[in-house]
Amino acid sequence: MASSTTNEHVKQHTISMTVENHFGTLNRIAGLFAAKGYNIDSLTVGPTEDDAVSRMTIVTRGDDQIIEQIMKQLHKLIDTIKVVDLTDDTFVDRELALVKVQCTPTSRMEIMQISEIFRTKVVDVSPKTLTIEATGSQLKVDAVINMLKPFGIKELARTGRVAIKREFQGEA
């Protein structure tokens, strides 16, 4: 890269793309990131309203020049239908985490209160654990996890980000 990559210019970007739902497409995209040495913070893939099309949401980071190359390289893949960098638009993004927390009869209520404050759901309960389903922005999911940490997190499963552009840009 021509410009030096200093940390100040590195920014997180959320890229949303639609691709042909062929086998190997995910491999092509993951392989591209690996081959070119781009970072992936998270990558999610799932179906869309059209069975033949999958949507991928990729959270990556880099300076403007690297992000420009990533966009161009993703677009260059034959199976790519559309690539959009949502970062400068307003968009809705969600992550989901399932957090299995250790609990005692005394801590159980406290954990459930925290869950309520964050509007998360208790989806499983056992004498020694509670499993919380947290959905929201990355920041919210991070916050939930941080609040639950002191109780002892036994297991954690977390998705990457999914995102979609808001229909009305610039409106709240």
Partner: peptide, 24 residues
């Protein structure tokens, strides 16, 4: 960084990813 440093650069190519990849 030093390549054609005194010049304005016009770059014509069919591959968008080839443009500004190495030299803006």
């Amino acid at each position: 960084e030093e390549f054609a440093k005194n010049a304005k650069k016009i770059h014509i190519d069919i591959d968008p990813s080839a443009i500004s990849k190495n030299v803006p």
